[in-house]
Design a protein around this nucleic acid. Sequence first.
RNA 1: GCGGGCGUAGCCGAAUUGGUACAGGCGCACGGCUUAGGACCGUGUGGCGUAAGCCAUAAGGGUUCGAGUCCCUUCGCCCGCACCA
Length: 819
Amino acid sequence: MARTAAPVYDPQAIEPKWREAWKKAGLFRVTEDSSKPKFYNLVMFPYPSGPLHMGHFRNYVIGDAFARYKVMRGFNVLNPFGWDAFGLPAENAAIKSGIPPRVSTEGNIAISKHELDIMGVLYAWDREVTTSNEDYYRWTQWLFLKFLDMGIAYKQKAWVNWCPKDNTVLANEQIVNGVCWRCGTKPTKKELEQWFFKITAYAQRLLDDLNKLDRWPERVKVMQANWIGRSEGAELEFFIEHDGKLRVFTTRPDTVFGATFMVLAPEHEIVQKIVTPEQRAAVDAYIERTKAETEIERLSTEHEKTGVFSGAYAINPFTQERIPIWIADYVLATYGTGAIMAVPAHDSRDFEFARRYKLPIRRVISVSREGANEPLDQAFEAYDGVLVNSGPFSGLSVKDGIERISAEAERMGIGRRTITFRLRDWLISRQRYWGVPIPIIYCPDHGIVPVPYDQLPVRLPDHVEFRSDGQNPLLHTPSFLNTTCPKCGKPSRRETDTMDTFVDSSWYFLRYADTQNETLPFDKKKVDSWMPVDQYTGGIEHAILHLLYSRFFMKALYDSGMVSVDEPFAALFTQGMIHRNGYVMAKSKGNGITPDYMVEKYGADTGRVYELFIGPPDQDAEWNDRGVDGVARFLHRVWRHVVGEEDEVVPGMAPVSNEDLARKLHETIEKVTRDVEAFHFNTAMSALMELSNSMQDYLQAGGERNEAWEAVCRDLTLMLGPFASHLAEELWQRLGGEGLVVFQPWPQADPAILRRAQVVVVVQVDGKVRDRIEMPAGIDEAAARQRALTGVNVRRAIGDRAVRRAVYVPDRLINLVTG
RNA sequence: GCGGGCGUAGCCGAAUUGGUACAGGCGCACGGCUUAGGACCGUGUGGCGUAAGCCAUAAGGGUUCGAGUCCCUUCGCCCGCACCA
């Protein structure tokens, strides 16, 4: 038992030098003119909040491992990183502490960078993008002006969601479960002049092109489709008695004969015009009441439907009946036309409302013509019925009824078929300081004047006074506020609103292609050579917001001719979150494991491999401190096998041949390759552990550390390259390998070695396993059957019955059927 | 309510196309090494049974030579949307 003084695995001693080596070798420093095929690998860039924990690192480790793997597979890999650096936390901190956002943000970036570095997560740092830097946000402003030119940026007075805590407006997408996505406060309503992007102009394309995204998770596409919310139907006009008309949107024009009243949203502008003197007091009181209600209360399905009669009547254009016009907050001002025709018999909400206010309910759809006048105890909403009580249309199917009544409304000049989307235009104004200034000037003579392109950027002043009342400091910064009109030179005022930070993140992946450009946001050729992103990895929380906005940007830029593809992300992977002690790992929960702790206790590689091994990457996973120990043991064992010289022989072990070990190696190469391509990193790590176990068996059975063994060591080392990257480099060097692992070709499985001479065929009798017999590979059915019948167990299981037939799966299984 | 997904050892989880259920890790047991160790190294580990074998993938049924995988019913859990006319 020779005990030589082989060095032990000491991660802290070896890791720093390999990080230096990668940087020195220019890992991920790329240009677009390469003979290799391009691969754009991207992880969602973060808001720089300072210290990172291992929960954050799942994303970065997956991205880093995949990028390194693709380099080894011979791709020219663009693997950039940056910082989504504008945003409220820095500004709120400034109000509390007085530290300017630019200072705290830069500090946080430095801290985060350090943590990425010590974990061996490396990027094309020469392409780093920081959205709060002038050389980035001037181009965000440039794109705003471009959108203005294209007519897809506009300013409008609107009732908007206002977060009283953050003191700013919110886009519809930023209200999650009825509360502010950032701070959880219930938003209120305010009527303000605001800037919008016309994302609704792209609704149909955003919906249709989801079909192109065959490498996106189904659930993300479903969420986006639901969010876009396309509805086919018709707009119909109802005359208001005495004066005017009312347009409604309905998906069920076939039920128009059952419209027994109308409902307006309280905010509908016609309300004030039609309300009668007798009802005025009641209507005003009702509107006041609904204003006081929060969005969450009003939108709840449990919320009992309330309303008030306006005093006015409309005429149902098909029945000529006088029907009352009500005002109720279950109708939303922002969807459709803000008004509906109520068909209580066939809409559960109208039904509930009619019951409460004793309004007539008339059935116009029935399963058959006979059941026409049976009373209903709930709305009949099904599409499989026939029209009844509908004049000349009675007897038609719902489908035909929709067609014919829509056509008739068009002929009468009171309606048209139309499509409505749930998606609203994107409200981008924010009444806050730490964001991209909207490049607009208000001139007393010329009104809204865009800042000319060549006068960009509109600089965000660093020295402002933060106010405890939360008001935008820009309003109180004369040097920013006061300017002159670009058209006439008169004293004018700047727009003080800044842009939603989701604007910044809607195009950062394009800037990575051309970060140094000083004349344009990006050069078309450079962007075209990298886009689309081949693999995008990030959190599911961006399923709608960021991913929808970026798709919109890409389509708008495609239309402007600035880019040649109209979908930004060809493949999307959304990783699950890491929990610990029952909670999502988070600084605020105090359950975070820091990279510094991991590096100090185990080394970066153990942390990297554990992040990959912890479970299926698309699912949430529980951090288990003992599981980390298991991974550490695995890496130590690999070291012992590859570097060590100790004798590991255990008496009595069955010998493992070099051939068997080589086959295991090539099976592993095949499996790890397939798993990594499919993002099954957990099973890829398992496969590497299995190979290590086989190497252990080989040594314990007295296998020599011969040339064949060394070949196994080399390929295992290469396969560890993307994952336990530092360890792999060290092993590679000790094995006498040339250059860096990350620049070696990924090992290839050799079919000749994979091929077995002998295979174990499972023998079943009537579907139950009775034997396993070694047979020559490629054996035909007749021969396999003959051999299968030789087994004692098999013969006993068959007994005196006859084998009626056999099902043979070549080289794997034969099932003898007696029944 | 609508839409999507899931249910496998004590725990996290494996299982191309329907073809040996439970790979890998944790935990546990035993052994080694140690003054000692909850460290490290090794061996074993679904249940019942002396064994042959039988039973096991939420529950029940179906299709099939064969079902964790496909179909139906029920139960449970998770996620998304939720008065969108």
